[in-house]
Design a protein around this nucleic acid. Structure first.
Lengths: 144, 144
DNA sequence: ATATATCAAGATATATTTATCCTTTATATG
DNA sequence: CATATAAAGGATAAATATATCTTGATATAT
């Protein structure tokens, strides 16, 4: 439904947002998000290339959000890791036939559209505003 | 979002439904759905084990739907191939904390719930009723 | 400058998904 | 019973997703 990698990215962005505009290192992010450090490093690279975060090497470096949490939607994150593939033409057809998908693929595309809409309508700031017990992710391990 | 395998299964079920209650062989289904024959055979096995279709070996054998198209929902098909994993406890937490997910995972779970709801509300019969140009899938290659 | 902190990039490893092929088993029909 | 048909099952292969590790590049502080 939503890949592991994408879910990791969302965890990281939420965590960065909570500290915004302070930078966080991969190590710190890994602790907070419980994502394996090495893999998270790759995910952060993708988010950097995608323009969502900026990176800074060296002492006191790390990653930080390029925009404010209120200006980042969940879809902004998701689409960097796994562009939700809208169905524009039937996979069966030789050519395409515009909006004239068969009922099955019309439904499947509507489903994706619905998910996109939901993801677009939720900003990262909104997630922070709803946070429980002062924690943006529900881990008990966050060390403040 | 929805795996290739699941999408193949939906194609096959829709095709079977269109001919219901006639059985169709893997070969025939493969032609109609454009799914690789060998792989489709495996998918059909899963659908059989899942109880959605019955299989019959030998001459005039093949697969047919166990229930009527109007009694099969898209979710019935999807859940055999990839059980949509609802998020009941936070992936981060050591234990679980009931309905008290963090905002991020609450949203992600809601998303899955929404998809489930849509898939449940669409029967295969409904897809057939909407079919274009008398074809349940939009392939130009169906030989009637 | 030098030492330290930190990300970037590439190679490699493992798991899962997708796909193919071959042999075996079951069934219908002459 | 013999034969043809068709699914079941197992082995293998290829592609992709997930994960680790090492080395190199770059920024900071002293």
């Amino acid at each position: 439904m939503i890949s592991q990698t994408t879910e990791y990215a969302l965890r990281a962005i939420v965590t960065l947002a909570d500290k915004h505009p302070q930078p966080m290192t991969t190590e710190q992010l890994s602790e907070h998000t419980q994502v394996p450090t090495g893999y998270l490093a790759k995910v952060m690279q993708q988010l950097t290339k995608g323009g969502l975060v900026s990176s800074q090497r060296g002492l006191h470096g790390g990653f930080k959000l390029v925009s404010k949490p209120k200006d980042i939607t969940m879809l902004d994150v998701v689409r960097i890791l796994e562009p939700l593939p809208r169905i524009n033409s039937c996979p069966l057809e030789i050519g395409d036939h515009g909006t004239d998908l068969c009922p099955l693929h019309r439904r499947l595309d509507n489903l994706i559209a619905m998910v996109e809409k939901q993801l677009t309508s939720t900003t990262i700031a909104r997630l922070l505003a709803e946070k429980n017990a002062n924690k943006p992710l529900c881990s008990g391990r966050i060390k403040d």
